[in-house]
Simulated assay, not measured.
Amino acid sequence: MVIRPEGRRARGTGEQQGSVLLPRPGVSPQRQVARRLLAALVVLWVTVLLVYLDRDGYVDNADDDVTFLDCLYYTTVTLSTTGYGDITPASDSARLVNTLVITPLRVLFLIILIGTTLEALTDRTRQQWRLNRWRAALRDHTVVVGFGTKGRSAVQTLLSTGQGRDRIVVVDPHPQAVRTATAEGFAGVEGDATRSEVLTRAEVQRAQQIVIAAQRDDTAVLVTLTARQLNPRINIVAAVREEENAPLLRQSGADQVITSASAAGRLLGLAMLSPNASSVIEDLIQQGTGLDLKERPVTKAEAGRSPRDCPDLVVSVVRGHRILAFDDPEAATLELTDRLVVIHRASRTRPEPDDRRGELR
């Protein structure tokens, strides 16, 4: 389903920017036609049965006997509003049934036949209602800009940590990518994410975080600036191809910057030097299977103790804006306000919301 709110048109195209697509169960045209034909046949045979049961109240101009075939013939010409008049209701009961039952069935039959036209007329109203309801319920969600390889991988990681599909909104300028996202159960916004009205359609001003997986580094910078302007408190995670552009992205307001080209190169180098180590790292960054690397808050039971006493393997301790190694003397005693970067088995715990920051842990 495509919902195209009013807005400025894209430069050089006739498409509107910020078209919102909400996921809906797909029904093939053949199945829709089959359903309507079945409904029409049900109405037809119900009417035939009513006429046949009351056949003594009808008069046939050709003969005095109203057979089942006559009832079928009368029903078809009546429901189609043809009405030749050769078979007519004569008794009071037959006329009453025609008035109170067969006439509504005739209207229902016609509605089924012209259902496609009626659906086209009411579709926009229904879509607008769904869109308004979706906007009203959307809070603290995740916006993913770019549904390519990086964006898909980010979405899969979010799903593996417990994020619901209804809490993810995909933004992409390519219609096919947005249609693919909605087919997978995500809401999608078609348009250029560097424009504020497109991100506004994705409700970025009420989002908890945004993942920027654009194809170009300059696009990632512009999206970061726009998102930070619309929501100063949003958590921005962005990917860049070239490492030299990472500082610019941080200055633009990104909280975390991932250099995709350099990271892939380091993994390639590590795979040559230490194949088993690269396999472990690949397992760590793939959430939901084997070992998982995650960040979580310190529990009350862990406060005041050493990182080595934690049930998970502690890699780093986040204290304020500093990241301390597990063997750093300052991290020897954990504080309740600390956060831990740990390694744990994926099947050990299920993701739970962090009450203090609203993040997944």
Rank of each mutant, 00 (worst) to 15 (best):
A263R: 05
D218H: 14
L268C: 10
E197F: 11
Q286R: 13
Q287F: 14
A271R: 13
V240T: 11
G265L: 09
D217S: 04
L267D: 07
L270R: 10
V240S: 09
T200N: 07
G269W: 04
R206T: 09
I285E: 10
N276Y: 07
E282P: 01
Q251T: 03
I234S: 03
A239N: 03
G265D: 10
L267W: 04
I210Y: 00
A264P: 03
T259V: 15
T226K: 08
Q229V: 05
A246L: 02
V198F: 02
L270F: 07
T224R: 06
L199Q: 10
S262P: 00
I234N: 00
V280F: 10
N245P: 07
Q215L: 08
R195S: 01
V204A: 14
S274L: 10
V240K: 05
S260I: 13
Q256M: 09
I258H: 03
L273Q: 13
A254I: 08
A254E: 10
A246Y: 05
R241W: 07
T259M: 06
N231P: 08
V221K: 06
Q208D: 14
A227F: 04
S278A: 15
A261V: 05
S279I: 04
N231W: 13
R266Y: 12
D283C: 08
P247R: 06
V221Y: 01
L225I: 07
E244S: 11
A254N: 06
G269R: 09
E203A: 12
A202S: 07
I234G: 08
T194C: 05
A271Y: 08
A220F: 05
A238E: 00
G265E: 08
V204P: 02
E243D: 14
L273V: 12
L225Q: 14
S262Q: 14
E203Y: 02
S260T: 15
A214V: 02
T200P: 00
L268R: 13
I234Y: 04
A213W: 00
V240R: 07
D217A: 07
L248C: 01
L199E: 07
I281R: 11
V280P: 06
R201V: 05
G265W: 02
N245I: 01
T194K: 04
R266N: 05
V240W: 09
A238V: 00
L248H: 03
A213Q: 01
N235E: 12
A207Y: 12
A227R: 02
D255G: 08
L199R: 09
Q229C: 05
A202C: 07
L222V: 09
S279T: 08
Q209N: 04
Q286K: 14
T194R: 12
I212L: 00
A261Q: 09
